[in-house]
C-alpha cells in the first residue's frame, strides 16, 4: 500500500547542503505496523514528514513514495492536502505545543472531518463526542469545549490521537508519540494506539528512539543510523538475532530488571555520538563509533546481507560479530 523507493532527503544548512536520509526503501502493507528506531538526528522524523509532504522549507526529497499507486512526491499541493489527515494521519511528539492554544479541542478534532467532508454539520458534535470517548477522555461532553491548556499532557496526546484518527485514515504515522509523556502514561497511550489500529484495521508507522517501545508495538522494524537503514526485519526475527553492531548497541543500552541482580553486568553505552548531518562520512555511516571497523567500512557503503528470511542487515563484518 505504501512503498518507499530510494528516498533521499536533502537539507540546505548554513554550512552547506547535506543529505539527511539516503536511499531509504521500505514497504508497508495494509493493516501492518512498522517501526523506525534510531537516535535523534538519524532521519526518522524527516522520513515521516516526507511521507506527509511537510518537510521544512530548507529541505527537499527525491525518490518515490508510492501510496495507493500514486507517487506522493510528484503530486501537487492540492492533491496532497486531500490525502493529509484524510488517508494518512499523523501524531506528533509534543502534545503540549501541537494543539492550537486558542481553539477548543472540540473544534480542533472536528476540523479534519469537516475539511474532508466526512460528516454533516449536524452530526459533527456527536462524532467528536464519540472520538473523545473512544480515546478515553473522561466526561467528553464537558471536555469538548475545553482549551488545550486545561488538559494534562496525556489527555492532550489522546486528543491528538482522536484528531489523527477522525477521518479513519489508512495509515497512521506516530512520531515519538510518548517521548514527552510521563513513563506511567506512556504505556497507556501506546496501548490505546495499538487497540485503535487493530479496531480500524489501519497500518501504522511508529517512530521512536526507544527500541523497547518499538519491539513491543510493531510487526516490522527498521533501524536507522546517520540517515540510512542499517538493519531491518520482522520484529521477532530481528530481536532474536540482532546483527548490526549499532542495533546491538541500541539493544544493550536498554536496562532490564535482571541487571540489578548481577553487579558484574553493566549497562552498555555506544561510544561517541551521532555525527552532524553535514559530517556524515562516506562508506558505512557507523564507522566512527563501531568497534569492528575495518578499511572497507571507510571506502564503501555496505550492501544488504540476508540474515534469514525477512531479516537483513547492512554491514561488512557480520561474520566477525557472531
Amino acid at each position: 500500500m505504501l512503498d518507499i523507493k530510494n528516498l533521499n532527503i536533502n537539507l540546505n544548512t548554513v554550512y552547506g547542503d547535506a543529505t539527511a536520509v539516503r536511499n531509504l526503501s521500505f514497504k508497508l502493507e495494509k493493516g501492518k505496523t512498522l517501526g523506525i528506531v534510531g537516535e535523534s538526528g538519524c532521519g526518522k522524523s524527516l522520513t515521516a514528514l516526507a511521507v506527509m509532504g511537510l518537510l521544512p522549507e530548507n529541505s527537499w526529497s527525491t525518490g518515490e513514495i508510492i501510496f495507493n499507486n500514486k507517487n506522493l512526491l510528484s503530486l501537487n499541493e492540492d492533491k496532497l492536502c486531500k490525502i493529509r489527515g484524510n488517508s494518512i494521519g499523523m501524531i506528533f511528539q509534543e502534545p503540549m505545543t501541537s494543539l492550537n492554544p486558542l481553539h477548543t479541542i472540540g473544534k480542533q478534532i472536528a476540523e479534519p472531518m469537516i475539511l474532508h467532508g466526512k460528516v454533516t454539520r449536524s452530526m459533527i458534535k456527536k462524532e467528536v463526542l464519540n472520538l473523545l470517548d473512544m480515546v478515553g477522555i473522561p466526561d467528553p461532553l464537558k471536555r469538548i469545549s475545553s482549551f488545550p491548556h486545561e488538559l494534562s499532557g496525556g489527555q492532550r496526546q489522546r486528543v491528538m490521537i482522536a484528531m489523527a484518527l477522525s477521518c479513519k485514515p489508512e495509515i497512521l504515522i506516530a512520531d515519538e508519540p510518548t517521548t514527552a509523556l510521563d513513563v506511567t502514561i506512556q504505556k497507556q497511550i501506546l496501548d490505546l494506539i495499538k487497540d485503535l489500529i487493530d479496531e480500524f484495521g489501519m497500518s501504522m508507522i511508529l517512530i521512536s528512539h526507544d527500541l523497547g517501545v518499538i519491539a513491543n508495538n510493531v510487526q516490522e522494524i527498521i533501524v536507522m543510523y546517520g540517515g540510512v537503514c542499517v538493519e531491518k526485519g520482522y520484529t521477532k526475527k530481528l530481536i532474536n538475532n540482532i546483527s548490526h553492531p549499532y542495533s546491538q548497541g541500541l539493544f544493550s543500552a536498554i536496562p532490564t530488571l535482571e541487571m540489578q541482580e548481577d553487579s558484574e553486568q553493566r549497562l552498555k553505552t555506544i561510544p561517541g555520538s551521532v555525527p552532524e548531518i553535514t559530517e556524515i562520512p562516506k562508506g558505512c555511516t557507523f564507522q566512527g563509533r563501531c568497534e569492528y571497523v575495518s578499511d572497507i567500512c571507510v571506502k564503501n557503503s555496505p550492501n544488504s546481507v540476508k540474515i534469514s528470511e525477512d531479516h537483513e542487515a547492512y554491514c561488512f563484518n557480520l561474520d566477525k560479530l557472531n
Binding site: C81, I83, R84, S98, N100, H103, E111, L115
Partner: peptide, 22 residues
C-alpha cells in the same frame, strides 16, 4: 513555525487555510 501549525497542515489544511484559521 509553531508545532500546532504543522498539526494543522497534517490535518490537510492548505497553506492559506492554515494562515487564516490558525
Amino acid at each position: 513555525r509553531e508545532d500546532y501549525v504543522r498539526t494543522a497542515r497534517a490535518k490537510g489544511l492548505t497553506r492559506r487555510g492554515t494562515l487564516w484559521k490558525h
